[in-house]
Design a binder for these strands. Sequence first.
DNA 1: CGAGGGCCGATCCTTACCTCA
DNA 2: GATGAGGTAAGGATCGGCCCT
Length: 186
Amino acid sequence: MGEEACNIELGLAIGGNDYLRPKQVLKEVIQEDINTIKSWRWKPKIEKYEDSDHGNEKHGMRKKLKLSHDQLASLEACFRAHNILNPAQKQDLARELHLKPRQVEVWFQNRRARTKLKKAEMDCEFLKRSCESLNNENKRLKREIQELRSGKHRTSPFFFPTMISAVCPACERMKKEPSSSSSMAC
DNA sequence: CGAGGGCCGATCCTTACCTCA
DNA sequence: GATGAGGTAAGGATCGGCCCT
């Protein structure tokens, strides 16, 4: 990691307000003399730990990579083409993006998982709306039945007694054959 | 049948951003 | 208005289990 990245992490050389000074870094340096702080160079935590693909880093600081815009664009494009990579594709993509194959693999795993989650959320939302709409329709039809039964619409040109007898009094559903056994529940 | 590798779901953890006092 | 604490979302990384070869 270069000096620029270090400065960005510290919040020292900021062009805009894209980055904030991390609290933990601030805590570490708060006791320092201001001159020391100015000359201090942030040592990336990543470099303090063994570079391992699968190592358990629970007892150390877990490194977190921030993928660049270009890397993300390539990964996205590749994901759209095929959301599961074969080993050769993984190797090629990793080499092209200067990432480890494991990182590419993890990115695809997370991408698949989060795509699936997103889809599930959208499906859920759609079903909720459908359910809500059906409930409203159900209420409306029940009201209509009630009104028809109470005779409110006897003067209406849309009133047909056979329609009432076609509705089961028990479950309030339309009977399959309204003409036969009209007084019985289905 | 056991080993190895890949995928998935759950979870951890860092980072960036937002809100509020 | 500036600042710091706390909350939250996003997303990279890890773990354990399952399945397949």
